[in-house]
Amino acid sequence: MMKTTLKYLSMIAFLGMVITFTACDDDDDNDMPVNIIYEQEDQMARPAINTVFVSTGEKDIFNTTPPAEQGAAFATKFNDKLLALNPGYTTNLLGLDAATFTGVLATDVLTVSLNAPTTFYDGTNVLTGRKLEDDVITVELILLFGGPDAMSNPGLTDDHVDANDKSFSDSFPYLASPH
């Protein structure tokens, strides 16, 4: 056992050693960078927007387009998608016509109020944050399919999953312990 431990230690020492004359990659210099740089791979704000509105073949692009540029690049496509999902769309509960609604959605940011209740929708406040218990999908379904009075397409405006399977905590980190 002792012998094994010693071998293990020598291995770790080796793995930590800096190789001075052999490089992995002649295309790239391997010095430690002064700045640690990252390239974006995924991006998200409002729930399920990418899943519902972004077509196959454009998800990588959507995920790497800064929000300030997303509207210009995706608003028309979102509009087409909305009308494909719900050909009878006129306006929704927020009074937004298709172009205005998808124009908002295509810029995928989440507004968070610092001085009012934070909620996706609580009957009064709209899109002022997203709480763990917010039934965000039902809200989105109502806005997509419910028409101006939320009464259209009753079979499509509620997935009838209204709450999480575990209750949340009032203290940090708030999310329920894992299953």
């Binding site: 793995l15 190789i19 052999t22 490089a23 992995c24 990659d25 391997n30």
Partner: peptide, 24 residues
């Protein structure tokens, strides 16, 4: 990237470079 570069170096017979890639 590094594990694939290790494979390439190994194929080219540059075992020491391959090892450095895999260690990284």
């Amino acid at each position: 990237y590094l594990i694939r570069k290790a494979k390439v170096k190994d194929h080219e017979g540059m075992l020491d470079s391959a090892i450095v890639c895999m260690e990284q």
